[in-house]
């Protein structure tokens, strides 16, 4: 791989992770590679079980006990210093977590310790990373709570159960950027929230990112959210990135039949009837994945080659990469439809 440009903050390089289970090894991610730039918002989209959550957990080394990283590196560049996250010592890892890379998990409903006030949980976090001054912590926390459009004083002195779901989610976002991390990982940041609360969270996130300049990796099955927030979109299928590119490239000129299939299965609010289609079949079993291209059993473009050879992730135009033998046929068929 090429040398890391100073603009790159995080590089995932040929990362493969296996879950050891009683039924066999689950190949959760396979040769995943991507670069995340400073200030960039990248969306990992894919269905449940596609491996997108595994990737995000690997970034902060919070994989379940039965997970084994079989190959690859996660390089983190900070002050022209490059470290492999997978090689960090316990002490280094503890400091890397939240200080450099914060992760906002899915379901903020349960993300806070129910018996501690929000204040205590902000203080715990700051102190674990060397902040001693309580007033300084308070000042920073209140300004962040204000940034996420909450009543700072009231929320800071609340117990978690005194906050609504949307408020908890926003408080968690504020806690996420408490230590000014370079990278914030968001796992399904709006799932299970009400529509109007989702809108508030999206607006708050955009606002925060503009002001605080961190990079975002967010994981979602919601294509609309990716369309709205992402600079770069990566489609994950069966543990592999099958397509990655700028948000416009992915949405308007997708080169992988799976990405295209997802796009044509999502209803819109446009003032015309949607013509939608499901992708036939269901996601593959990752203990014994299909040969060749893992999408071939569900793909209408599949040929004999697809059953045998796994297509490499190849550069198309600009920064747009896709792993498909039949990009041209897909593009041609879309022109016909249009």
């Amino acid at each position: 791989m090429s040398a890391m440009s100073p603009e790159t903050i995080l590089r995932v390089d040929e990362l493969s992770i296996v879950y050891r289970t009683d039924r066999g090894d689950v190949r959760a991610t396979n040769d995943i590679s991507f670069d995340l730039k400073r200030g960039e918002a990248m969306a990992l989209i894919g269905e449940s079980g596609s491996g997108k959550t595994t990737i995000s957990l690997a970034l902060i080394r919070k994989l379940p006990k039965n997970a084994v990283v079989t190959s690859g590196q996660i390089l983190y560049q900070h002050d022209s210093n490059v470290q492999d996250v997978l090689g960090l010592s316990r002490r280094q890892l503890r400091s890397f977590r939240w200080n450099d890379c914060a992760m906002v998990f899915q379901g903020a409903q349960n993300a806070f310790n129910p018996v501690l006030k929000i204040r205590k949980q902000f203080e715990d976090t700051a102190r674990a990373h060397g902040w001693a001054d309580k007033t300084a912590i308070r000042k920073r926390a209140l300004s962040l709570l204000e940034l996420v459009r909450l009543d700072p004083e009231r929320v800071y002195d609340s117990f978690p159960h005194e906050l609504s779901g949307g408020m908890k989610q926003r408080t968690l976002l504020a806690l996420g950027v408490l230590l000014s991390p370079q990278v914030v990982i968001l796992d399904e940041p709006t799932t299970a929230l009400d529509i109007l609360t989702q809108r508030a969270i999206i607006d708050v996130l955009n606002d925060m990112q503009r002001k605080l300049q961190f990079s975002i990796i967010f994981i979602s099955h919601d294509l609309s959210l990716a369309a709205e927030m992402a600079d770069t979109v990566a489609t994950v299928y069966a543990g592999e990135i099958v397509e990655i590119g700028g948000v416009d490239e992915i949405f308007y000129r997708s080169l992988h039949p799976y990405t295209y299939g997802l796009l044509t299965s999502v209803p819109t609010l446009e003032h015309a009837q949607d013509v939608l289609q499901s992708i036939p079949g269901s996601p593959p079993n990752l203990i014994a994945p299909p040969s060749g291209c893992k999408f071939h059993p569900r793909c209408s473009f599949a040929s004999d080659q697809c059953q045998v050879d796994s297509p490499p992730l190849q550069l198309d135009i600009g920064s747009h990469l896709a792993a498909c033998w039949h990009k041209d046929r897909l593009l041609a068929s879309r022109k016909e439809d249009a």
Binding site: I60, K62, W98, F105, F112, A128
Partner: peptide, 15 residues
Amino acid sequence: DYVNVAEARGLKERT
């Protein structure tokens, strides 16, 4: 979740 999050926050193991 909150235990998971606490670990992700880089809190000391003791805490």
